[in-house]
Amino acid sequence: MRRLRSLLTDRLALGLLVLAALVLGMPALKPLFAAAFPALDRPLYEADGFLALTLDHLALAGGASLIAVLLGGAAGIAVTRPFGREFRGILDAVAAMGQTFPPVAVLAVSVPVLGFGPAPALIALTLYGLLPIVENTVAGLESVPEPVREAARGMGMGPGALLWRVELPLAAPVILAGVRTAAVVNLGTAAIASTVGAKTLGLPIIVGLNGSNPAYVIQGAVIVAALAVVLDAGFDRLAARLTRWRPNAV
């Protein structure tokens, strides 16, 4: 009983449960959609399995976010070291300006340059995801107090130990906020990427909108929304874990 209650108040566990039920159990809801939309011949999207669409969606959004974390993190670290300081200003400017570009427009513009399909979509999402990650990596590393750095050097930490043991853990909450922004944007843009030839959960939505089939639209939309809620809860959990040492940690 207590287990059940803790499950119901745990947004992440509950979200995962609902997500799994929707992804795996959507076919079981066919009668419901048939009843709600009696005018439709096909009340359930069956051209692709929802599990396969979800996995492809996650591969695109997650893959792009992961590559962006590695590249963006490396770039953010590089421009805060002495050897890369010269590139700091231009990187800041690009990151700030690039983030005003709407992600959907960036995705669209990538098609004439890179072509249709999942790979160009992955590149577009990665490039866009880089911006908040770079920006926050730099901001996070800069927020490390100078006395902490001096104490670390004074006790004999080399540049590597300083970075891995002190600077990155202290910057982690800020970096994580950037990763979160990138992941949330990528999750949404990946849905729209079904218009540029990537099979994702956006596909039932687009097909439904073009074919006036609201049932398809709703089926795609609820799974994407559930994914978003799970992602949000997951990042909340991670952020709480990374900030336990802070004064106002919950």
Binding site: G188, A191, I192, P214, G220, A221, V224, A225, L231
Partner: peptide
């Protein structure tokens, strides 16, 4: 804010 736009449009549809 977290829910992708295309999904929110879809959810508003019904």
């Amino acid at each position: 804010q977290t829910i992708p736009s295309i999904a929110l449009f879809g959810l508003l549809l019904a």
